[in-house]
Design a protein around this nucleic acid. Structure first.
Length: 512
RNA sequence: CGGGGCGUAGCGCAGCCUGGUAGCGCACCAGACUGGGGGUCUGGGGGUCGCAGGUUCAAAUCCUGUCGCCCCGACCA
């Protein structure tokens, strides 16, 4: 008897050990694995399919806002990075550097050939502002060449100390938008437009509520004038930066020489922006929606919307049940959801029914249909929804299901967003005293110093005078930082830490 | 990079203290039973115990070094 079977498909649960739970979800949902290469992950088909869906939707949004795709080199000459002082400082400590172009055998080992040493080392791009800026400088001569609206889908490398699948890996996949404009106003408008695109995507596709805001000076992208972000709350109540949009002023234009003659014949530097989201979004999706039974995929980005599980215990039923399932699959594939035809699979693998059911639950597929002879006789389907308990299943007439499947998926999508919104609201507190702030972010004491920190805190909204030393102090004391200064108007007030006047409240949280 | 923990079959672990030549659960394979469910029974395959030295008649076990992974911290998308 395996009656000791866990009550949840994922062990440990979120409450028991959040960090370990996250890794187990990634593993059991078959999203990704660590690789033999330090800090680099292998994204498995189910995880990659999520990324592909994100790419498809975002790419459409970028094109709808006038952008076009291009591709720039993986390698960046070292000297390019040196051109922008703040940029160098920000990335110098995490660059992979190529110094040779040939290997030779020495004492039975392959080693770089000293004779092949590069005159100038190449850096594997941590981001592409410099190389793209170099090209923009060639492409832009006149105000008629502007705006230049380019996006790149690429991989980048940042040699991080400590990595976590999807959230922080040495190599990750992303898109980076790079634009150049004739005026500061246009560039700022672009920066805000793309931030809004990200927020729209997060809410309406990822079912993830986000706060749009501006970063403080300390959290700003190296070389940017202003950095904006969308911040989401994970289920351990920490903040995750899910996307960034930077107004770069003329910093990179000056570094790269992006100059143009305006309509009055005056030579000036262009104004640039950059913006990006990465495979980190997959991590964000996991930590926003997954539960103690595994992944929960928002229907609009699901690689498979509906999986059909044929119940074929008796050999003589097998053929007719399979035929019924495949016919239903083909009919469902005619239906449209979120602008695309339904993605439906029949899982006819030779596995036990229970195993299959739990595999799909752990992968987070939105809707499961169990179909056997009994259902066929009634011309019905037996439905399991991922936003309900595993055993909470219901029967529905086949025709009715086909007609309402898209609506059901949208219902799941809406329920997921509502749940995530409620969670964020529940763990966001308006705070006006230093004592309450410190208490809010202090974890309950525990006996074992090496045990995972209990989930506590959340988002705190306080007034803030903008004092850099204070921000540093709070970070040292609590590990809490200003995640962003939310967009929009706010009530002026007084900073609870310094008594300085504050234009509006800011969002504090522990961050990924 | 600082503090802690861990590398034994595909996965999860026991064995290590008190050296004697490797075991359990799951998974996998075969057969039977079962049949709206993460089954039952029987039989079976699979590991030079992370790597490299050292001590010893003998090392998964003791010693040294090294590599890797995880957690906490610093740094970061």
């Amino acid at each position: 008897m395996s009656s000791a079977k866990a009550a949840t498909a994922i062990v440990p649960t979120r409450a028991d050990d959040y960090a370990e739970w996250y890794q187990q979800v990634v593993k059991h949902a078959d999203l990704a694995e660590t690789s033999p290469v330090r800090g680099c992950m292998v994204i498995k088909p189910w995880g990659y399919a999520l990324w592909e869906n994100m790419q498809r939707v975002l790419d459409g949004m970028f094109k709808d806002t006038g952008h076009v795709n291009a591709y720039f080199p993986l390698f960046i000459p070292l000297s390019f990075l040196e051109k922008e002082a703040a940029h160098v400082d920000g990335f110098a400590k995490e660059c992979a550097v190529v110094t040779h172009h040939r290997l030779v055998t020495k004492d039975g080992k392959l080693v770089p050939d000293p004779a092949s040493k590069l005159e100038e080392p190449l850096v594997v791009r941590p981001t592409s502002e410099t190389i793209i800026g170099e090209m923009f400088a060639k492409w832009v001569q006149s105000y008629r060449d502007l705006p230049l609206l380019i996006n790149q889908w690429a991989n980048v490398v940042r040699w991080e100390m400590r990595t976590r699948l999807f959230l922080r890996t040495a190599e990750f996949l992303w898109q980076e938008g790079h634009t150049a404009h004739a005026t500061a106003e246009e560039a700022v408008e672009e920066t805000m437009k793309m931030l809004a695109v990200y927020a729209d995507f997060a809410e309406n596709w990822m079912a993830t509520p986000v706060i749009q805001g501006e970063k403080t000076a300390g959290e700003r992208f190296p070389g940017a004038v202003q950095t904006f972000c969308i911040e989401a709350m994970m289920q351990d109540r920490k903040a995750l930066q899910a996307g960034t949009s930077h107004f770069l002023g003329q910093n990179f234009a000056k570094a790269s020489g992006i100059q143009f003659l305006d309509d009055k014949g005056v030579l000036g530097h262009a104004w640039t922006t950059s913006w990006g989201v990465s495979t980190r979004l997959v991590g964000s999706m996991i930590m926003t929606h997954a539960d103690d039974d595994g992944m929960v995929v928002p229907p609009r980005l699901a690689p498979t919307h509906v999986v059909i599980l044929p119940v074929t215990h008796k050999a003589e039923d097998r053929d007719r049940v399979l035929a019924y399932c495949k016919a239903l699959r083909d009919e469902l594939r005619q239906q449209v959801f979120a602008g695309q035809t339904l993605r439906v699979e029949v899982d006819d693998r030779d596995l036990r029914g229970g195993d299959k059911v739990w595999q799909w639950i752990k992968k987070g597929v939105p809707v499961r249909l169990e179909i056997g002879p009994r259902d066929m006789d009634k011309d019905a389907v037996f439905i399991g929804r991922r936003d309900k308990a595993p055993k909470d299943k219901q029967s529905m007439g086949r025709a009715e299901f086909v007609a309402t499947a898209a609506a059901m998926l949208q219902g799941i999508q809406d329920a997921m967003l509502a749940k995530a919104k409620a969670f964020q609201a529940e763990h966001t507190r308006t705070i006006d005293t230093k004592d309450e702030f410190y208490a809010y972010f202090t974890a309950p004491a525990q006996a074992d110093a090496n045990a995972p920190t209990p989930i506590h805190g959340g988002f705190a909204l306080t007034h803030f005078g903008g004092d850099v030393a204070l921000e540093k102090q709070i970070k040292d004391d609590l590990g809490v930082t200003v995640r962003c200064i939310p967009l929009g108007d706010g009530e002026p007030g007084t900073c609870p830490f310094t008594g300085q006047p504050s234009p509006k409240r800011v969002v504090w949280a522990k961050a990924y």
